[in-house]
């Protein structure tokens, strides 16, 4: 026997202050912070899809375009994300290679896949393993900003390595797209409403 839903108790959660408003008192605004009340996040699925797709589109140039330009003693080289991973691996720094690979490839791809999976299951009103899907979503929220690691690394390097003729590191367009990917996936995660996962259960009831 599952516990009752908020709807059934005529309650609605304020998105801003998380106050459980009683619809009996005020149907539109939070009685505590006066924010508009929604049953679910508005247009959650469409917005998440949109942001996810945008992130996916940006993920292509983020990987194709170089993220860094290293100038060391006139030796010019540009690095893409995957290229740097391969280089680091070949240079023997496999630990750093793994970190960068996880942060910049595994995590974003995982986010795409998980979000897409959640969206699809919600739209199909699947009822199975709701708990696990919710856990997936929580995990998604948790790891989201770790993808910014790359952006931070590039930013730090570009700021620190400015030795003129001896060596110079400049960020390249790729990192901008990568940052956009991270931001967009995080936004997509935020716009997704995890309660939608359970709605199918309610409908069944």
């Amino acid at each position: 026997m599952t516990p009752p839903f908020a709807d059934e108790l005529n309650l609605r959660l304020c998105h801003r202050c998380k106050y459980a408003c009683s619809l009996d008192r005020d149907r539109h605004r939070c009685s505590r912070c006066n924010a508009l009340l929604h049953r679910r996040k508005p247009d959650a699925i469409a917005r998440t899809w949109a942001l996810l797709l945008a992130a996916f589109v940006f993920y292509v140039p983020a990987n194709v375009l170089p993220i860094l330009r290293t100038t060391a003693l006139q030796h010019d080289s540009t690095t893409t994300i995957l290229g740097s991973v391969v280089d680091l691996w070949q240079d023997g720094a496999w630990d750093i290679a793994v970190i960068i690979f996880v942060a910049s490839v595994v995590v974003p791809v995982a986010k795409f896949l998980i979000l897409a999976f959640l969206l699809v299951t919600v739209q199909r009103r699947s009822r199975g393993s709701c708990r696990e899907r919710t856990q997936l979503y929580r995990g998604l929220e948790l790891i989201g900003y770790w993808s910014m690691l790359d952006v931070f690394v590039v930013g730090l390097l570009a700021a620190l390595v400015q030795f003129g003729v001896l060596g110079d590191i400049e960020p390249r367009l790729g990192i901008l797209f990568f940052g956009l990917v991270v931001v967009l996936t995080m936004m997509a995660t935020l716009t997704f409403d995890s309660r939608l996962i359970w709605d199918a259960v309610k409908d069944e009831r």
Partner: peptide, 28 residues
């Protein structure tokens, strides 16, 4: 509170958020 419907919804609406992937595609 008015006695009218709880939420008004437009019959056809395209969420503004779709501009984001559109811009992404255009940029790409």
């Amino acid at each position: 509170p008015p006695a009218e419907p709880e939420v008004r919804e437009r019959r056809w609406h395209l969420p503004l958020v779709w501009i984001v992937p559109l811009v992404a595609v255009i940029v790409g």
